[in-house]
Design a protein around this nucleic acid. Structure first.
Lengths: 189, 189
DNA sequence: ACCTGAACACCGTTCAAGT
DNA sequence: ACCTGAACACCGTTCAAGT
């Protein structure tokens, strides 16, 4: 990465820029040929830098992912555990909904060590783990709720957001987060 | 449909049988060529009977869908409104999780009148409407929860089920349904 | 009236040749 | 060391010809 030739580095950056814009517009299934063309390189160059679509996605999410993980700890320092958890979930959901198809990619990479996105999933889960632990200590969530549950709910919320209105998406996420809370009355269901 | 030639009718049935099995195994993206081959017909015959993949899916779900809708009213007669709602949601979620990709197809057809699956979505939502109305009258769910919220939650639950273990899927659906309930303590979030 | 399957289109992926 | 783009592969879809 450091030792890349100047033109190679420039192509790499351009590819990332165009991929970002294409994924944002067309979702994670956007045409790779298109991305290469817009970046002004041949399709082979794209493959040379990013052997798979998921690898491209991973590079694209790298920085953003660091921000998300850092935010978990910030929130944990600023807010009561339950509010920190909810705020983080909302923020990660919004981030995940940026590209149509991303929720599906992340969800299917969660358990797949061979996926380039596996690391991102792990990092997100680890961050969620701290929030869940805090909320659990505060008695704010059900004791049986895990960080992987939180991950799945966030992914699900981002997934529905791809289709429904922002208002409805917001409401549904609220429902899901409330479902995670420890309810005063134990549920009849 | 009534007046189909005998060989045509047989091909039609075979195609449905093979589609069912292919979708169950490979998800709703299963190869149509494969389905035609297994049904012993040429690919053109499949297209003659089912102009689009969604049309094939719709024919496949038709009977099953009637059962699901009928079940809503049955449950409503047998159980308290909130339990009926939950039982129905569990059953529809299981049904929707039968084919990988079905949740996505249904979700994206919900608002798309031109989709062959639009009718199925409407029927499901109408059935859900009765359950939601009953539960709302009983004061068992949040007053702002709608039938389309229920639809979305069911779809989301079916979607996560495609990836996570059955246990976790079960737990997550419970969380979601609890989130729909009217909570004694108004949520801090 | 229905079926066949070659032909076309589209897109992802590879790799020999070039700079 | 990196890039190019033709070639290959795969699959969905159409339609002229056949029964």
């Amino acid at each position: 990465m450091r030792k890349m030739r100047a033109d190679a580095r420039r192509n790499y950056e351009r590819l990332l820029t165009e991929a970002e814009s294409a994924f944002r517009t067309y979702g994670t299934d956007a045409s790779l040929e298109d991305i290469a063309r817009r970046a002004g390189v041949a399709i082979g160059t794209l493959y040379a830098h990013f052997p798979t679509r998921q690898a491209l996605l991973e590079s694209l999410l790298r920085e953003r992912n660091d921000v998300v993980v850092a935010k978990a700890d910030e929130l944990l320092g600023e807010l009561p555990a339950d509010e920190a958890l909810a705020a983080w979930a909302r923020s990660v959901t919004a981030h995940t909904a940026a590209f149509r198809g991303l929720a599906t990619s992340l969800m299917s990479s969660f358990d797949d060590e061979s996926s380039p996105l596996y690391g991102a999933c792990q990092a997100m889960t680890a961050a969620g783990e701290r929030l869940v632990a805090g909320a659990r200590e505060a008695g704010a969530i059900r004791p049986d709720a895990s960080a992987s549950d939180l991950f799945a709910l966030i992914a699900a919320a981002a997934w529905v957001r791809e289709t429904v209105s922002d208002e409805q998406a917001e409401r549904l996420l609220t429902f899901m987060l409330d479902g995670l809370r420890r309810t005063a009355t134990s549920p009849a269901w």
